[in-house]
Design a protein around this nucleic acid. Structure first.
Length: 263
DNA sequence: ATTGAGACCTGTCGGC
DNA sequence: TGCCGACAGGTCTCAA
């Protein structure tokens, strides 16, 4: 568990095993962390945010293959117990040694992740967070917000769901899942879920509710299997539907949907 | 301004 | 058996 290992603990040492992930580490990354304690660990969109006693914020994105291994240090430096078979230490890019004796290792084979530091009071203006849409599980998100964000967009609605300015934190898998749950074709024009003035049509209400539903379920049951994602060629899981799941490419990303029940 | 395409990265998988 | 291309993910940059 990451939160107990970081929250309230101080960075005693930081080891960078390479100069960059998706982007370079910021200048003096190690020096700016060492000696600081983590006062809060939060999340915004797909970014993990660790507030430091210095006022700076450590920003982490896991990309697609990034994760943290948490273990008790066995020696004075960065000595760790042997890793189990699944983890390849060659992709251990960053190691934090915390004041509570824990080693927190960031492993990311594909290096799509990133780490950065935002200056005190600079978090909201940071390029990664600026312009993000509402959190889907917050009260700010709903049919009205979704319709407002989409009503001038000519792109397909599923592509709009991947735009983090529309709604923050929905990725390619749950965009397809939400579209299916709401019975809305991913090919429908984004603006079609709103009236000309940006008010929500019924499709916006259905889609907003489905986004909340699939994300809530994903958090409750992380192992649950997907209804449509990577299930092309299989029967539509909706009981009353006789369709077959199809895969299409939209904006360079796979979309999975049922052409029969999603209109 | 909006939209699309390409780049980044590496492990995996299917086809020859 | 090995090689080679396609593909997966999120976000940034560049161009139309």
């Amino acid at each position: 568990m990451l939160a107990p290992a970081l929250t309230g603990a101080r960075f005693d040492a930081v080891l960078l095993r390479r100069a960059n992930l998706r982007i370079p580490f910021p200048a003096a990354f190690e020096d700016r962390l060492v000696g600081q304690a983590v006062t809060a660990l939060t999340r915004r969109a797909k970014y993990l945010l660790a507030t430091l006693t210095s006022g700076e914020t450590l920003i982490v994105h896991l990309g697609m293959s990034g994760w943290f291994r948490v273990e008790r240090a066995i020696g004075p430096a960065f000595e760790a117990p042997p890793v189990d078979g699944d983890d390849d230490p060659k992709h251990d890019h960053v190691v934090f040694r915390m004041s509570n004796g824990m080693l927190v290792t960031f492993n990311d084979p594909r290096r799509f992740g990133l780490m950065d530091l935002a200056a005190r009071d600079g978090l909201a203006a940071h390029a990664a967070l600026k312009g993000l849409g509402p959190e889907p599980l917050s009260t700010e998100f709903g049919a009205a917000a979704l319709a407002r964000a989409c009503h001038r967009k000519k792109i397909p609605i599923k592509v709009a769901l991947l735009d983090q300015r529309v709604v923050a934190g929905v990725g390619n898998i749950y965009a397809s899942e939400a579209q299916h749950d709401a019975r809305i074709s991913p090919k429908r024009r984004a603006s079609a879920i709103a009236t000309a003035s940006g008010a929500p049509r019924p499709a916006a209400t259905a889609l907003a509710a489905s986004i909340v539903k699939v994300l809530t379920r994903a958090i409750e049951r992380p192992q649950a299997r997907f209804k449509v994602y990577e299930r092309d060629g299989t029967p539509c899981p909706r009981r009353t539907c006789s369709g077959t799941i199809r895969r299409v490419v939209q904006a360079g990303r796979s979309t999975f949907y049922c052409p029969v029940c999603q209109r």
